[in-house]
Amino acid sequence: MRRYVLFLPLAIFLGIGFFLWRGLSIDPTELPSARLNQPFPAFEKASLTAPEQTLTPDDFKGKVALVNIWATWCPTCKEEHAFLNQLAKQGVTIYGINYKDEPVKAREWLKRYLDPYDKVVLDEDGKLGLDLGVYGAPETYVIDAEGVIRYRHVGAVDARVWKDLEAVMEQVSSGAGA
């Protein structure tokens, strides 16, 4: 019995070493999405830019598009906003979800920094974001023409990220899936 006790520290060391090695090999930017390859979650929410209009997932159908989660309180959202405006000018369809924000501030933001979105859902209570599995703003999804989520990116969209998103959108448009 005494012999086994001598090997106990070695076994503990190897166990801790394994968990540290495993933890260091995980990509912290890669967050799984439970909604991947599933339809956009059901919702009925007001439009930010046309408050008398109610938007639903049907409003996101018809084109392969980006869905961008953003907020005025999010500094990274401001950082990516100019690039989203460039994409919109190039003809990329982008839907916005204004996440846990004040509508007045959000409308002022879009006036000041321009509006790259075809439609903007007002998600004041964050329920739609919760249903999507949003960790925080910004997040961007690629959806197909039927409104099925094909890809998720957490963080700002810039020229480097756009290459990946564009490739996924082309793949989805060609019917190859993501």
Rank of each mutant, 00 (worst) to 15 (best):
Y151D: 11
L114G: 14
L14H: 00
W73A: 12
V67K: 02
K127G: 09
P9Y: 00
L31Q: 09
E102N: 14
T140Q: 08
Y113D: 15
S173K: 15
L14W: 01
K127M: 13
E170P: 10
V134A: 05
A82M: 10
A46H: 01
V120G: 07
E139Y: 03
I149G: 05
E30Y: 02
L128Y: 08
T49P: 13
A46S: 06
A82Y: 10
K119G: 11
K63M: 06
S174T: 04
R107G: 04
R150N: 13
L8F: 06
P28V: 00
P103S: 05
Y95C: 12
M1V: 15
L84N: 06
D158I: 00
L31A: 06
F40V: 14
P138L: 07
G175T: 05
E170V: 09
P41Q: 08
G96R: 04
P103L: 04
T49R: 11
F83E: 06
T76A: 11
L128D: 05
A88E: 11
G126K: 03
E79F: 14
E146W: 06
G62F: 00
L6H: 06
G91L: 09
T93Y: 04
F18I: 12
N37F: 07
L24M: 13
W70R: 03
D101S: 01
T93S: 14
R107T: 11
A46N: 03
G17I: 03
K45R: 09
A11M: 09
S47N: 06
R152D: 09
C74Q: 01
E124V: 15
P57W: 08
L122T: 07
Y99E: 03
L20K: 09
P39R: 10
A88S: 14
Y117A: 12
E102P: 07
K78G: 14
K100Y: 01
E146K: 15
W162G: 00
K119S: 13
L20D: 07
P75D: 07
K61N: 09
P28E: 03
R152T: 14
A167N: 08
P41T: 06
P28M: 02
R35L: 15
P41C: 05
P103I: 00
E44A: 04
F43C: 02
T29D: 05
D58I: 10
V142E: 09
G126R: 01
D123A: 06
Y113E: 15
A176G: 07
Q171H: 06
A88L: 11
L20T: 07
L55V: 10
L128K: 03
K105S: 12
L66R: 03
L24E: 13
W109I: 06
P9H: 02
G175F: 03
V104W: 02
K78H: 15
E124D: 13
G147W: 01
E44H: 02
Y141H: 09
I69H: 01
R160V: 08
